[in-house]
Each structure stands twice: as structure tokens, then as C-alpha cells.
């Protein structure tokens, strides 16, 4: 799973969000490191929707502009949990190696 997809899934894990809120949330989650362009966001969203990890929630009109909300599916929750477990295992392994190195 790409970092962008991981961050978008994480952003949607809390509550359904519209596109601009996803962009802001991803920027916040990554502490400003990942700033999604609109074209990039839709590439990621299209892929996540096609894989059944996210789906459309509802539509609203805000200041005359369409806002479409997206939410995580059950499969999306499972995929995110699996990715978190994988990354956590990697972090534990790396931490262990670093601790052993420092102890030498």
C-alpha cells in the first residue's frame, strides 16, 4: 500500500470526509510532508473505491460548490489494520536492531 493510500485511509478512519477535508487531514497526519494535489487525490480515491476499501457517502453543496463525502468500508478498515500491523512489526524490528547496536 502506498503512503498516500495509507494516509487517505487513515484520514477516513475517523469519519466520512469530503475531498478537501481529506487533503487537509493527510497534510496534518503527515505533519506537512504529504500535500496531495487534486489530480493525485482522485487517482488514490479511484483506486481505493475500485478495490472496495472506500465508498461514496453523501453529497452536499457548500457555498455553491459540490462536496462529495467518502467513507471507509469494512474491507478498508481491515486493510488499514493489516497495514498498521505490518508497519508496526517493521518498526519493532528496526527498533530492536538499533537498540542492539547502541548496546554494543
Amino acid at each position: 500500500m502506498s503512503e498516500q493510500a495509507f494516509l487517505v485511509l487513515t484520514a477516513l478512519a475517523e469519519e466520512p470526509l469530503h475531498g478537501y477535508a481529506v487533503v487537509q487531514s493527510v497534510e496534518s497526519l503527515s505533519e506537512g510532508r504529504v500535500v496531495l494535489r487534486v489530480g493525485t487525490l482522485y487517482g488514490v480515491l479511484d483506486r481505493l473505491v475500485a478495490e472496495g476499501l472506500t465508498e461514496r457517502d453523501r453529497e452536499e453543496v457548500h457555498q455553491g460548490r459540490l462536496r462529495r463525502y467518502y467513507r471507509l468500508t469494512d474491507a478498508g478498515v481491515r486493510a488499514l489494520s493489516a497495514e498498521v500491523a505490518r508497519l508496526s512489526a517493521n518498526v519493532r524490528a528496526a527498533s530492536s536492531v538499533l537498540r542492539a547496536r547502541e548496546a554494543r
Binding site: H18, G19, Y20, G39, R67
Partner: peptide, 27 residues
């Protein structure tokens, strides 16, 4: 997409003279 793009931009000057930018064009 237009709604998201414009939400990330700010100011009358930008609205009048701004361009999407190379990064957005590439994406």
C-alpha cells in the same frame, strides 16, 4: 475537483492572476 482545487487557493489576486501550477498540471 474544481471545488477542492479552489478551496486550497486564496485571495483575489490569486483568483485573477493565479495558475494551477506545474505540480497540479502534472498530477
Amino acid at each position: 475537483m474544481v471545488g477542492i482545487f479552489l478551496a486550497g487557493r486564496d485571495g483575489d489576486l490569486d483568483a485573477e492572476y493565479g495558475w494551477p501550477g506545474w505540480g497540479e498540471a502534472w498530477a
